[in-house]
Design a protein around this nucleic acid. Sequence first.
DNA 1: CGGCTGGCGTCGT
DNA 2: TACGACGCCAGCC
Length: 100
Amino acid sequence: MGSLEDRVYKNLLKVPKGRVTTYKELADSVGLKNGQRAVGCMMKKNPLPIVVPCHRVVKSDGSLGGYAYGEVMKKRLLSKEGVVVKKRRIENWDETLFRF
DNA sequence: CGGCTGGCGTCGT
DNA sequence: TACGACGCCAGCC
């Protein structure tokens, strides 16, 4: 507890369904100014895939980015939560993006 | 302990 | 708007 990854996961849990956050925002929220890739690594290593919704983490330009279980699955999961994804791009970006 | 890779970001072309 | 190059931080070999 208290480790970097734990803080990342905890912050990610704050993101409600139907909203998403970005690697940048998440990294910044834990004190890392340029830890976007580091966050990606943590998501990839995600020890609690069910509890931690890594599919709600997308790129800053509105594209979904990658996903350990495939981008298709990521898109499906997001769509199920109400996030509209149009050709690898999230619609209503400012409405969908959750800010800490 | 050194080097490479990766679910990325930002800037320049 | 799309693509390429460089930079960043945390793991893995």
